[in-house]
Every structure is written in structure tokens, then in C-alpha cells.
């Protein structure tokens, strides 16, 4: 018996012809909502990343003489109370919001998958880790998030600068308060997988636990992880916006969609349309991500696929 090279990432199965990802894509294509969601999400991501290169007004540029202007050619979304261009601010805010969503999702999924796999695989740790998960599930999360942001904002702002400090704080706070669902789902899947014959076969030829997890368990729990990752983006974006909305998010000169919405509330009576754009951006992003997650769930399920 030769020692197989250790794969650190679950590699695509190298079948000649087509890989299973083509089957996944074929199934994903049949879900109209998911396809539409992917298109909308792609459009939003593209417009906040490439948009600022084309629309070169600085989001922080203050033009006090043209403040509170309605939509025009020079400012398609108008300007705010300091004469800053709202389109430029929307794009800058979108970059931060989506970056927060992706990073926080990454933290929570890595944490959740790790805890779930370890809890499911090693029986000794199961009680402790699931106790921890249940404890976290019983914590009042939004109040604690608010308290965390309130307490550590100053400290982190001093060491990393106000923008980076807040980013690190919010991303890690959201990450460590949202991994529990992933951990539970992954643990359940791992527990079921452990009873399967291929795991028994792998164990009987003396596969060490580490390789067992990386090569046999992880690739098989990839689909629930991917689905909860997609949905995690949506929750992270909403949580960040909620924090910003309560005034405990990013500093005012560093806009996010939630912050823009929060700032627009003060001018609700005079300029109600200003609330509309950031809110629509948040809702559309979350809606499209949710639809993608829905489609992904069907596409990754081999029982549904190919029917």
C-alpha cells in the first residue's frame, strides 16, 4: 500500500469528461430565482468594485454649495446635506458592507465548520463543544454585539486606526456570534457520515484522523457548509447595517449602507428618497444572496440533482 499524497483542500474529483461541478451548475441553472439572484448579486458586486473607477467623484468630497440637490446628470442620486455625491457614497458604502459580509461569513463558517467537524468526529469533545454551542445560542446576541462594539471601539481604533479598527471589531464580533447554526448542521452530517461504510473502510486501513477528516469527511459536508456560507453573507450584512443603524457601526465619514440609511433618517421629512437607495441596496443584496442559497441547496443535493 502506498501512501497517498495528503490533499489539504478537498480537490475536485479528477474524472475525465465532466466534473461534478458541471452537474451542480446544470441543476443550479434550472432554478430561475437563483440564477436571477446570482445575476443581481454579481451586478451589485461589480458596480461597487468597478463603479468607483468610472464614477470618479470622491465619496468624502464636500461641495457645500451644491448640497441637498435632487437627482441630476452631475449627481444621479443627488447630494447629501454636505454636498457629497450620494452615488459615490453608495458605491463606497457597498464596498464596505459587502467586505464586512464576506469576511464575517468566512470567520463564522470556518469556526462553525471546525467546531462542527470536531464535535461530530471526536466523541470525547462532543459534549463540551455542543454545550458551548448551546450556550452561545442562548446568549442575547444583538445586545451583546452592541456592548462589544461600544466597549472595544476605542481600543481597536487607537491601535488600527478608526476605519480598520471598526472593521476588525465588527467583522470578528459578527463572526464569533453567528457560527452556531453551521456547527450544528455540520455536526449532524458528520455524525451520520461516521456510520457509513466508506468511513469504516478508511479507518480499517489505518487512516489517521486528520486525513480522515480532510479527505473523507470534509468533502462530504461541503454542501451544507456552502449553503450556510451563502446565507451567512446575508445575515452578516443585515447585522452590520443594524449596528450602523443604531449608531454603533462605522464612523460617519466612512459610509456603509447601514450608516447611509441612518444618516438619511434625519432628513426623512424633506428628502425621503435618500432613505430609499441604501435600504434598497441592502434588501436587494440580501434577497439575491438568499435566492442563491436556495438554488445552491437544491443544486448540491445529489438526490434532487438530475431529476
Amino acid at each position: 500500500m502506498t501512501d497517498a499524497p495528503v490533499a489539504t483542500v478537498p480537490a475536485k474529483p479528477d474524472t475525465s469528461g465532466r466534473s461534478q461541478w458541471w452537474d451542480v451548475w446544470d441543476q443550479f441553472k434550472t432554478h430561475k430565482g437563483a440564477l436571477f439572484g446570482a445575476a443581481v448579486f454579481g451586478f451589485i458586486v461589480l458596480s461597487v468594485t468597478i463603479g468607483p473607477l468610472l464614477w470618479t467623484i470622491e465619496p468624502t468630497y464636500i461641495d457645500i454649495r451644491s448640497r441637498n440637490v435632487g437627482p441630476s446628470l452631475a449627481h444621479p442620486f443627488g447630494t447629501d446635506q454636505l454636498g457629497r455625491d450620494i452615488l459615490a457614497r453608495m458605491m463606497a458604502g457597498g464596498q464596505v458592507s459587502i467586505a464586512v459580509g464576506l469576511t464575517a461569513m468566512l470567520i463564522s463558517v470556518v469556526l462553525g465548520a471546525f467546531i462542527g467537524v470536531v464535535a461530530g468526529f471526536f466523541r470525547k469533545l462532543d459534549t463540551f463543544l455542543m454545550g458551548l454551542t448551546n450556550l452561545f445560542l442562548a446568549l442575547p446576541l444583538l445586545p451583546l454585539l452592541l456592548v462589544m462594539v461600544m466597549l472595544f471601539r476605542e481600543t481597536l481604533a487607537r491601535s488600527f486606526g478608526p476605519e480598520m479598527g471598526t472593521f476588525i471589531l465588527i467583522v470578528s464580533a459578527i463572526g464569533i456570534t453567528s457560527w452556531m447554526q453551521t456547527a450544528r448542521i455540520v455536526r449532524g452530517e458528520v455524525l451520520a457520515l461516521k456510520e457509513r461504510e466508506f468511513v469504516l473502510a478508511a479507518r480499517s486501513i489505518g487512516t489517521p484522523s486528520r486525513r480522515m477528516i480532510l479527505r473523507h469527511i470534509l468533502p462530504n459536508v461541503l454542501s451544507p457548509i456552502m449553503v450556510s456560507a451563502t446565507l451567512g453573507i446575508a445575515t452578516a450584512i443585515i447585522t452590520e447595517s443594524a449596528l450602523s443603524f443604531l449608531g454603533l457601526g462605522f464612523p460617519p465619514d466612512f459610509p456603509t449602507w447601514g450608516r447611509l440609511l441612518f444618516d438619511a433618517i434625519d432628513y426623512l421629512q424633506q428628502y425621503p428618497e435618500r432613505v430609499f437607495w441604501p435600504g434598497l441596496a441592502i434588501s436587494l443584496t440580501v434577497l439575491s444572496v438568499n435566492y442563491i442559497g436556495d438554488g445552491l441547496r437544491d443544486a448540491l443535493d445529489p438526490r434532487i440533482r438530475g431529476r
Binding site: 432613505v275 440580501v286 438568499n290 435566492y291
Partner: peptide, 18 residues
């Protein structure tokens, strides 16, 4: 219900006010 999931209360509430 997808909309209910996706539109956060701080937007739907503000929209209602508007």
C-alpha cells in the same frame, strides 16, 4: 416571505413611515 426575510426592519419600518 423572501421579501420579509430580506428587507431588514430598519428599512421596512422607515419605508412605512415614508
Amino acid at each position: 416571505s423572501m421579501i420579509g426575510f430580506s428587507v431588514p426592519p430598519f428599512f421596512s419600518g422607515v419605508l412605512m413611515i415614508v
